[in-house]
Amino acid sequence: MQLAAKFETDAMLTIKDLQTPLIGPVDLSLKSGHCAAISGPSGAGKSLLLRAISDLDENTGHVSLDGTTRDALPAPEWRRKVAYVPAESGWWAENVQDHFVETPNLAELLQAAALSNALSWQVSRLSTGERQRLALVRALQLNPDVLLLDEPTSALDPSSVARVEALLKARLEAGCAVLLVSHDPDQPSRLEAHRYYMNSGELFENPAPGAIQ
């Protein structure tokens, strides 16, 4: 199974000719339990790519998960399976608690993010890093098959980065696929990620070493 890997038949997330007015066409495939990391200058379209995959912006092309095409699923169901966490998530209520549904894994996830007491807090008093981790917890609650993460650790101190990466590794081991945008040059190797590079809306595999950042 791992050896036949190169081609998309057993790929979990398959993207072909994904295009919006600003990016693409993009081809990408991501296997269960694998991680891909995209780097590139700001404005290259990295976030737009993630938005297009989660169908938040209008786009054309073919996207499928385990052979099921995206259009065959209602968009809300697709987004629960392919969960996208933007660099800055929205908080629509005053209290942290109102943004979470009670699921059996909630307490455990909050503990793993070192935010066990956060539910009783107010959103306005959260730091950027706390928001970032809570947004990740919120997405992990959905038990998605694929995680699309936009700079998930950009606002975190080193110990929190380690904690989030441990959470992600656990997910990868459980068979989840992770596609992340990262400006941290060492993060891809820590997550054993396949590297991609994005520039002017185009996605390249294996960038030349100098091209990262």
Partner: peptide, 15 residues
């Protein structure tokens, strides 16, 4: 003004 708030809910699988 609340684009992010609406999209955050859409991303959690709300209609």
């Amino acid at each position: 003004k609340g684009k992010k708030d609406v999209e955050a809910q859409l991303l959690l699988g709300k209609t």
